[in-house]
Simulated scan of single mutants.
Amino acid sequence: MTTQRTLAVVSAGLSQPSSTRLLADRLSAATARELELLGHTVTIEQIELRDHAHAIIDAMLTGFPTGDLARAVDALTKADGVIAVTPLFTTTYSGLFKSFVDILDKESLSQMPVLLGATGGTTRHSLALEYSVRPLFTYLRADVVSTSVFAATDDWATGATQHDGRDDSVNPLPQRIDRAGRALAERVAARENAGPADPFATAPSFLDLLR
């Protein structure tokens, strides 16, 4: 049976065009392709944090998001899976990325399948995904897939942006993107569409109280 799956793709790139957005697009395309192979139709919700930068700061000051930012947060929390990609500055996620995560409800990503990606100048920063970004989403109790993708500037230099079946040793980025997309797709496909929990599900009925 064909089912609908929604992916929320968070990109924290600061420039336009952005290598961070490029990686986010490649990861979402790979995930969508794998989900379609598994028999699902896919909707992708793009959340470009650069467009919400001022609203994110306002939300940090007021305690709640409004307008387009509120709609973006709603799309994120209702998605079946999340792809989150940040540039790395000073060996960690960007301030914009962290500020966006800070305005989310602490339970909003609980058990949510999440694929992590990051971009940076050189591969020496790649471990920041594991010691900085992954613990952030683990704290939120997200279901973070084991495969994450870091793309350095040199990874884009050959122009290979998708896996074409040639020698992956020349540029392993397309292979890593495909592998990560497959891992997230499998996790999303296996996830039950339980919907939001009913806060009154365990409350006794009025008839039971009368008895």
Rank of each mutant, 00 (worst) to 15 (best):
S132N: 14
M112K: 15
L136E: 04
T41M: 04
T41H: 13
L136S: 06
A118K: 03
F137C: 05
S132D: 15
Y93D: 06
A151S: 10
E130P: 03
V149Q: 08
D168S: 15
G117Q: 07
G195F: 09
F97I: 02
Y131L: 03
P87K: 02
L116R: 08
E130A: 12
D154W: 07
G121T: 02
L35I: 07
H52A: 00
D102R: 04
F150L: 00
A197L: 13
R191W: 06
E48I: 01
H40Q: 09
A157K: 12
N171T: 14
V133T: 13
G181K: 05
A142G: 10
L37Y: 07
A151K: 03
L69W: 03
S11V: 03
S15L: 00
G181Y: 03
D167E: 12
A203W: 09
K78W: 02
T119Q: 05
T2L: 03
E48T: 12
P196T: 13
A59V: 04
V85A: 05
F64L: 04
D25C: 04
T20G: 02
A194V: 11
V145Y: 08
A183P: 10
M1E: 13
S99Q: 06
I177L: 06
T31V: 08
V73Y: 10
P17W: 03
D155K: 01
V114N: 14
K78F: 05
T90W: 10
H52Q: 10
S110Y: 09
S18L: 02
Q46M: 10
F64M: 04
D143F: 14
G121V: 02
S126K: 00
Q16W: 12
G81L: 02
D143N: 15
K78H: 14
D143A: 13
G81Q: 09
T90P: 00
T123Y: 06
L22S: 09
A183Y: 08
S132P: 01
L27M: 10
T158C: 11
L209Y: 13
S15H: 08
L27R: 07
L69T: 11
M1H: 06
L210E: 14
T2V: 06
F97K: 04
L96F: 03
H52W: 01
F89G: 01
D74M: 02
V85T: 01
T86E: 06
E192P: 12
I44C: 10
A8T: 07
A29N: 08
R179H: 14
